[in-house]
Simulated assay, not measured.
Amino acid sequence: MEFDGDTLVIDRTPSELDKMVLEFTEILDEENIEYVVVSGYVAILTGRSRATEDIDIVIERLPQKRTAALADRLRDAGYWGATMPLDDLFDTLSDDVRQRIAEEGMMIPNVELWFVKNEYERAALTDPLIVEVSDHEVAISPLELQIAYKLFLGSEKDFEDAIHLYQVFEGHLDEDRLQTYVAELEVNESYDELRRT
C-alpha cells in the first residue's frame, strides 16, 4: 500500500467484495454520479480483516430522471433492489431511506445506497480520498473524517475500525483536520482512548 496524502494505491488481488465495489462504482462513474464509499468497507479495503454484509455508498442528490436511469443501468448489470424494487429507487432515496442493492437473487453482500443528507457526508462526497485498486479508482471518505465518525458511531466494531485506520495511516494523517472532526463530533474521550491503544 502506498499513500501520498492525495491518492492511496493498493497493490493486491481484489477480493470478491472488492470486485463488487469496483463494478458498482464503475457504473456510478459511467453515469457521472458523484459518490463516496464510507464506513466499514473503508477499513476492509485498507487491510482490516473482518466480515461485512454491506458496502455503504453515499451519492449526490439526483433528479428523478437520472435516478431512473441509474436504476435501469443497475438492473441491466444484474442487480436488484434487495429491500425495495429498483423502480422505487427515486422515491426511496428521496425519503432519506437507504436502498440495499445486490446481485440478482442474492441478499448479501449488498450495497447500501443513499442520497447525501448531512454536512459530514457532504464533506466526504466533495473531498474524497481516491484509491487505486487493480487499475480502477474508488472514492472513499477522507481518513480523518472516517476515523472521527467511526468514534462517533461508537460500537466496538466501529472503534476497532477507527483504531485500524489510525494505526495504518499514522504519520500520514492531517492531525489538525482530524482534531477538528473529533471536536465537532464531540468524541475527544474516545479519541484519547484510541491514541493510548
Rank of each mutant, 00 (worst) to 15 (best):
F90R: 09
V131S: 02
Y149P: 01
K117H: 15
E144A: 05
R100Y: 14
V138F: 08
E119F: 08
M107C: 08
L129I: 05
A124H: 12
E132V: 07
S134Y: 14
V133A: 06
A102V: 09
A124L: 05
I130D: 10
Y120Q: 04
M107G: 11
L125C: 06
A139N: 09
A123V: 06
V133L: 15
W114I: 01
Q99R: 08
I147K: 00
L143F: 13
H136Y: 12
H136K: 13
E132C: 00
R100A: 13
P128D: 01
L145P: 07
L125K: 09
P109S: 09
K150N: 06
L143N: 06
L145F: 07
M106G: 12
S134G: 00
E119G: 04
I147W: 12
P142W: 07
I140V: 11
M106V: 14
E119I: 06
G105T: 10
D95W: 07
N110R: 14
E103P: 04
E132Q: 10
V131N: 03
V133W: 06
P128E: 01
E104W: 02
E137N: 10
R122E: 14
K150S: 02
F90C: 05
L113D: 03
I130L: 11
V138Y: 10
D91I: 10
I108F: 15
E137V: 05
S141Y: 11
N110G: 09
E112V: 08
K150F: 01
L129Q: 08
S141L: 00
E137D: 09
E144C: 05
Q146H: 04
P128Q: 03
K117P: 03
D127P: 03
F90S: 06
E104Y: 02
L113C: 02
D135E: 11
K117N: 14
F115R: 05
E112S: 11
N110Y: 14
R122N: 09
F115I: 00
V116W: 13
I140T: 02
V131Y: 03
E121W: 12
D91G: 05
S141V: 01
S94D: 11
D127N: 15
Q146N: 08
D91R: 15
V111Q: 06
I101W: 10
E121D: 14
V97S: 13
P109C: 11
V138S: 00
F90T: 02
P142S: 03
P128G: 01
R98T: 12
L113F: 10
D96K: 13
I108L: 15
D91Y: 13
I130N: 09
A123P: 09
W114G: 07
R100S: 13
A124D: 08
E144R: 01
V116G: 10
E112I: 04
L125P: 02
